[in-house]
Amino acid sequence: MEVPRHWRLKQQRYALVGEVCPHCEGKIFPPRDVCPHCGGEAKTPYTFSGKGTVYSYTIMHDAPAGYDENVPYTVALVKLEEGPMVTAQLTDLDEQGVQIGMPVEMVTRRIRQDGDERGLLVYGYKFRPMIAGAR
């Protein structure tokens, strides 16, 4: 099934949908239609598991416009279990805070609102500490 590109871009933001390379099986995020590993064309959508580990992080005290209601918040480089690295906010942190190597999982959350309380709400992926439980 051919998925229209605009829909795939929303999927990228809401659900970590990237691409898988048909030539070398490399997983690609964000989707760019060209495989960074082998240079071949790669347009097959691939939904990432959402599981990964914290590679590094920083705590934001001064936020860009639209994000200021959330300060302070943590932005991390997350290494996905399929390979790619993504930059994302961490959420639902407990008293223990963040450690390098901490297992995290993707959740879809409110990222910001466009302008004031009349504006559009923007949703996208963040990562939270893995919850203990059945899966």
Partner: peptide
């Protein structure tokens, strides 16, 4: 719910 949560999330 947390700051970034609502009925949609």
């Amino acid at each position: 719910a947390g700051l970034d949560e609502d009925v949609i999330t």
